[in-house]
């Protein structure tokens, strides 16, 4: 076999073999792009209501302004914003709210003093989509980093 073909064959085998790494090594799973673990939407759901949430984080500033906190304002993707802040806030994790406010206040003149998670629940029924508004989960936070 020509040397170039040996090299190409080696790379092909190596890349194929590397795809086993994210499957078996959880620590590397998120860090070795473009070699990925391709398990997507893998978990099954039992029979039950077809229900989902729509979350929105709202901030209140020291001067009383109300602002919807977008992914652009935080500097993260919507998935990361949801995973790192919205989901923990939904289950009562005040440290996530605190971290979010510190992150946002770094570059602000009018700092946030309160963040609120607003959750709407939507259910698919035989007669259409039913929307339910849940009580907001509010976190009051010290706008300055603790020393």
């Amino acid at each position: 076999m020509r040397q170039s073909k040996v090299w190409i064959s080696t790379v092909i085998l190596l890349v194929i073999a590397l795809h086993a790494v994210p499957v078996f090594h959880a620590g590397l799973r998120k860090r070795i792009w473009p070699i990925l673990d391709w398990a997507m939407y893998k978990d099954a759901s039992p029979p039950g209501p077809i229900e989902t949430d729509r979350k929105r984080i709202v901030g209140i500033t020291a001067t009383g302004q109300r602002e919807v906190i977008s992914k652009e304002a935080v500097g993260l993707s919507s998935f990361a914003l949801d995973r790192l802040y919205a989901k923990p806030m939904k289950v009562g994790d005040s440290s996530a709210a605190h971290q979010l406010v510190l992150r946002l206040n770094r570059q602000r003149q009018d700092p946030f003093v309160e963040v609120r998670l607003e959750v709407e629940t939507f259910t698919a029924t035989d007669t259409g989509i039913v929307r339910r508004e849940n009580p907001p989960i509010t976190y009051r936070v010290d706008p300055t980093p603790s020393r």
Binding site: W38, A39, Y41, K42, A44, S45, P46, P47, I50
Partner: peptide, 15 residues
Amino acid sequence: SKLIAGGPSWMNGYT
């Protein structure tokens, strides 16, 4: 991965 993690229930429609 769907068959391993979810099993046949993955095809129950609800999922």
